[in-house]
Design a protein around this nucleic acid. Structure first.
Lengths: 172, 172
DNA sequence: TATTGTTATACTCTATAACTATA
DNA sequence: TATAGTTATAGAGTATAACAATA
């Protein structure tokens, strides 16, 4: 089987029309492309506040759930506990949150937002809402609601789907 | 003897209710959560074929656009040229694609899919469609179409949005 | 001088094992 | 024994600078 095809000319001109029609048939591909746009805008929006997506998410969760522990936060944000440590460290060093001692369980910390943390949270939250409203303005209110509902259904479907197949994740 | 816990708890922690209601107000957050589900399933689906998302995408693009160059492929997949090299290397080593010489431009390569590459592409494509159909079965046909249309609008909106603001990305 | 493919590098994000101190 | 937080580390994924060959 000769692999030399230097004589088969296909004329790969720079003006050639590139098509990703096949990949567009995959919902995951289209979803990823759209999410990259949202993600990039979100990162730009948060940058002036010195926040990244994950640090902002952690700040919001702590502010909304005062006293929560790191393990709970990691679970809620769907990240591993070790990766949360540096995130919490950063927020604590900037005095946006505090790690308080839990009298009933001296292994754990009670996470609390500070006044400065809540102020930053409020500003970042409003900025994000404004940016997202701008990007999503191409969608009607109904389209936007239906899209978000569909996203929630997809996310929720995973648990249902896993239960159905009784995941054997221990071996694979 | 299966180990049975006296008190089975999914989250062995305070009985506190954790809420991510605020983050749910951000479309980007909800979008990311849903995409993670699709992404994880896609990775699982491709694993038996020895493909990752990016290598599968490259294979499909090359098969659908015979003769395209690496720079074009990198642009289409929205990745940097240096990161594409190792991907192309992998596909070429497995003889799924070939790098052919372009007589008219000896700097460039003409990317072509091999028969084995096309066969793997067909199998992987069908597997992905089946998996996605299963996950998206919680949505009606109309809901699915509307969701995908919304995703395309969001992605397309970025260019429009950037044009409107006449990006000063050179300094930011 | 600009472009194609490439190398080297670095930085982020994520995943896992193992340690400590508690329970 | 099990859990909460931590440390160290490794693997992806992604970004930029710079180089050789060629246009």
């Amino acid at each position: 089987m000769p692999k030399v095809q230097k004589f088969t000319r296909r004329v790969p001109s720079p003006e050639m029309k590139i098509s990703d029609a096949t990949l567009r048939l995959h919902a995951g591909y289209t979803l990823k492309r759209a999410m990259n746009v949202m993600q990039a805008d979100l990162a730009r929006t948060l940058k002036p506040f010195g926040l990244r997506m994950i640090t902002y998410s952690a700040l919001v969760m702590i502010a909304d759930n005062p006293g929560m522990r790191q393990a709970q936060l990691a679970d809620a944000l769907a990240i591993e506990r070790p990766n949360l440590v540096v995130i919490i460290d950063g927020l604590e060093n900037r005095e946006l949150i505090t790690r308080d001692i839990v009298p009933t369980d001296r292994r754990a910390y009670s996470l609390q937002v500070t006044l400065a943390g809540k102020r930053l949270y409020d500003k970042a939250f409003k900025a994000i809402l404004a940016h997202e409203a701008e990007i999503l303005s191409i969608l009607s209110d109904q389209e936007r609601e239906q899209m978000l509902a569909a996203m929630c259904l997809i996310e929720a479907a995973e648990e249902h789907w896993r239960t159905l197949h009784q995941e054997k994740k221990t071996g694979d």
